[in-house]
Amino acid sequence: MTISFRSPLGFVLLLLAVLAFGYLLLPILVVVAAPLGDTGYLAFPPRGLTFKWYAAALHDTRYLSALAVSLRIALTSALIACTIGVAAAYGLTRFSFPGRRLLEAIFLSPLILPTLVLAVGLTLFFTRTGLLVGSWKLVAAHVIVCTPYVLRVSLPVLRRFDRSLEEAARNLGASPVMAFFLVVLPVVRPGIVAGTVLAFITSFDEVVLALFLAEPGAPTLPVMIYSAVQLGFEPSVAAVSGLLVLATLGLMILYHLLGTFGGRRN
């Protein structure tokens, strides 16, 4: 360390960092812990200990079907975003042509667009044109917000890729398509997987577009939680949110472990 923790400056820095982590984790801890209380209303710290709210959440068909809707939409959006995003990223890094930077900027621009603005525009658009039905409206919207994440992760990976490997494959007689799938893709796969996971999470957590565009009878999980929280503080909503947090934590640890093992293998 440049700065010792024992010096006054180091101590202040450390104190602020500890505060920051406490601040980051506090509301998440609340959501996980509050439904453990058996007071019948949400309180933190919880009083008493019961698992009945968590058990009830696991059997609540409304939330389970919302979860199914969310998973389906997130999976569809992430796969579409991955396909069109990786194709575009490969084109952007492989070929040089006038307007390439502009095209890249346009493809990335939904990142800076407020999702609410996108939601208003798309709702009006779908109402007027009658294009797309059912959950496809939301999928289209999520593809727009997810594709930039795929691009942002896969562009640097593809730029770093050693082009001579691809040329070697071509010299040995591989077609451009074969060279891409047999040589380029295996090398850049971790980046593409990371981008797709990011796209999946973005779609799964997204609430604004879903509020505007989800089918009235089939809300996504964030919309269900949003509406339930607005109506009142049932412990069951907190239990659903808590389960979501725990599942996210579990998946993150799993992904990290897989990544670590993958890294060692290489």
């Binding site: 957590d205 939680i225 503080f233 996210t248």
Partner: peptide
């Protein structure tokens, strides 16, 4: 990775 809705909910309880 936790939805902003869920995190805001945690604050509301506090």
């Amino acid at each position: 990775l936790v939805s902003a809705v869920v995190r805001s909910f945690g604050w509301m309880v506090l």
